Amino acid sequence: MKRLNKYISDTGFCSRREADKLIESLRVTVNGRAPELGTKIGDDDVVCVDGKEVKAVPENKSDRVYLAYNKPVGITCTTERKIKGNIVDAVKYKQRIFPIGRLDKPSEGLILLTNDGDIVNKILRAENAHEKQYRVNVDKPITPMFLNKMSSGVPILDTITLPCDIKQVGKTSFDIVLTQGLNRQIRRMCEYLGYNVTRLIRKRIMHIKLDGLKAGQYRQLSDDELNQLNNDVVHSSKTARDS
């Protein structure tokens, strides 16, 4: 038996969080009836989303897809096809996939896409401390005070950002490594200190890099990248309760 949201995410239909939203909006049925959140699924149960059956996948995940995509500016990280410029239509992959996390519409660079719902939260949860590196351009010269405050923590969204590594690489540009994923975090941090971001590129997620991908291009993760990814998240918590 497994929870309904995990069953749906394991099929590659969407992430576990999105599965919960589908259940709450009554778009999911189990054996023809609307289920509750937390419902558990057995081998003989029939699960449908919008009237179409979603079937269980091989335990060895032999059909899973893992892509690195260089998201251009203007693409929205959503699977909602009704939204113009959504990432699913932009990638045009032959199988159903969804993004791991987000890059806001004005930002660009590396984002991972998959149909392995089990791995999503392991990568995203801040307490798992998986690194993401960004190149950031701002609208005026960077000062030592700015670098110090950015690295030590900035009050945004009713919290203080975690200490992070930051390195100036130009008069108005810097590299920053985060283990958090707060909404528009870098832009909000800069704005708090009186700077506006003019360009933001994500260059790395954990050990995975853009590796020369041009804007709008994607590639399959290599066997080495995928093996290291699985090794790195094997002890990561999937939910707060797992921690």
Rank of each mutant, 00 (worst) to 15 (best):
M1H: 09
K2L: 14
L4S: 00
K6M: 04
Y7F: 03
I8A: 00
R17P: 04
D20V: 00
D20S: 02
S25A: 13
T29E: 14
T29K: 12
R33W: 08
L37D: 10
T39H: 09
I41L: 05
C48W: 06
C48T: 14
V49R: 00
V57H: 08
E59W: 03
R64M: 10
Y66A: 00
L67N: 00
N70Q: 04
N70H: 11
K71C: 05
I75T: 12
C77H: 09
T79P: 13
R81A: 15
G85F: 07
G85T: 08
A90V: 01
A90N: 05
K92Y: 10
I100G: 08
G101W: 03
P106V: 09
S107V: 03
D118Q: 13
V120N: 10
N121V: 13
K122I: 04
L124T: 04
A126C: 13
A126G: 11
A129Q: 15
E131C: 06
Y134G: 09
V136F: 11
T143M: 13
T143Y: 12
G153W: 12
P155A: 06
I160E: 11
T161F: 00
T161A: 00
C164A: 00
Q168V: 03
G170V: 01
K171M: 07
V177A: 06
Q180G: 01
G181H: 00
L182D: 05
R188Q: 09
M189L: 03
G194D: 11
G194Y: 04
Y195I: 06
T198M: 05
R199E: 15
L200A: 06
R204C: 02
R204I: 01
M206G: 07
H207N: 12
K209E: 15
L210T: 02
K214V: 09
Y218G: 13
L221W: 03
S222Y: 09
H235I: 10
S237K: 12
K238Q: 13
T239W: 08
A240F: 15
R241T: 14
D242M: 07
S243I: 14
S243G: 14
S243D: 15
